[in-house]
Simulated assay, not measured.
Amino acid sequence: MTTDALPLVAGKVAARKLVVFACFLVTAITLIPVVMMVLVAFQSDGESMAAKPSFWPGSWHPENLTRAFDLVPLGKYLLNTVYFAAGTTVLETVTAALAAYAFARLRFPGRNWLFGVYLATLMIPSQVTLIPQFVLVAKLHGIDTWPGMILPHAFTAIGVFLLRQFFLGIPRDYEEAARLDGANRWQAFLRIIVPLAVPAIATLAVFKFIGQWNNLLWPLIISNSDATRTASVGLQVFQDTNGTQWNLLLMAATVTTVPLIVVFFLTQRWFVRGITMSGLGGR
């Protein structure tokens, strides 16, 4: 290495360290509310309600966990959230894969026009369609039922768009070879396209599950009892019925957040890949 190249290398190393430091700083700032939530969750009632709060507990109270579960059926809410998030994730993954395959591989009149219209629904805010969805579910007697909770969120244009772009990147030669070997369209889809599209399907599933776990608005208006209330709605019910007991409320919030953190770390590579695929790479 020549002496002229040393300043360039040193500059690159310094820039890399600066980027790492900036990422660490942003991460630390982002985690501050989470750390505060966990610390307050272990405080006593007096500490959490003090006029001048101290976020570090003067004494730790792990019994707040039991108290939170005693005040509301938190375990039931968590189980309901799993049902809701998993149900919508499975259904949307299946429907999006089938629709995306049709738009990417099948040729029929008006295909591109129909896909453009379908994609245009992404520009409509979900709040605009909330009342029509509620009226439709009510007319079908779906209020406070699992079909009423899950089905309206089982079909989205973004899932179809993401998988269609991935399917377009799969060479047609694989599918045509399978068709020459005697496979029909359905067999080619299941045995060729789906295995090759596992990364995209897994990415869609991760994004959908995390999004539905945090969904508050739709479960809030469609569920009327503990039989279908999710964790997000349960936290609202907790505050309404027990007042603002910050330590117990934040303990309940901590409990509902832990499964989501576990899911994120288990599926981190799919989550990062999903962010990369969102650009769609000009495919």
Rank of each mutant, 00 (worst) to 15 (best):
T2D: 13
D4N: 10
D4F: 04
L8N: 09
A10L: 12
V13W: 12
A14G: 01
K17D: 05
L18V: 13
V20S: 13
A22Q: 01
C23Y: 08
F24T: 13
V26T: 15
T27D: 05
A28D: 03
I29C: 12
L31S: 08
L31N: 07
V35Q: 04
L39T: 05
F42Y: 07
Q43G: 06
Q43F: 11
G46M: 08
S48I: 08
M49I: 09
P53A: 11
F55S: 01
H61Y: 12
P62M: 05
P62E: 10
N64K: 02
T66N: 13
T66P: 00
A68W: 01
L71R: 11
K76H: 02
K76P: 00
Y77F: 14
L78Q: 01
L79H: 06
Y83W: 14
Y83T: 13
A85Q: 06
T89D: 11
A97N: 09
A99G: 09
A104M: 02
R105D: 14
R111M: 07
A120D: 06
L122Q: 13
P125I: 03
P125F: 04
V128A: 11
V128C: 05
I131S: 03
Q133A: 12
V135C: 00
V135N: 13
W146V: 12
I150C: 02
L151N: 02
P152S: 06
F161W: 09
L163R: 03
G169R: 15
G169Q: 14
I170H: 10
P171K: 08
A178N: 11
L180V: 15
N184L: 05
W186H: 06
F189K: 07
L190Y: 06
A197L: 02
A197N: 10
P199G: 11
A202W: 02
L204V: 04
V206A: 10
I210W: 05
I210L: 15
N215M: 09
L216H: 09
W218G: 06
P219H: 11
I221W: 10
I222V: 15
T228W: 01
R229P: 00
T230N: 10
A231C: 04
V233W: 01
V233G: 00
D240Y: 02
N242T: 15
N247D: 13
L249Q: 10
L250G: 03
A252N: 01
A253G: 14
F264W: 05
R269I: 06
V272Y: 09
M277W: 09
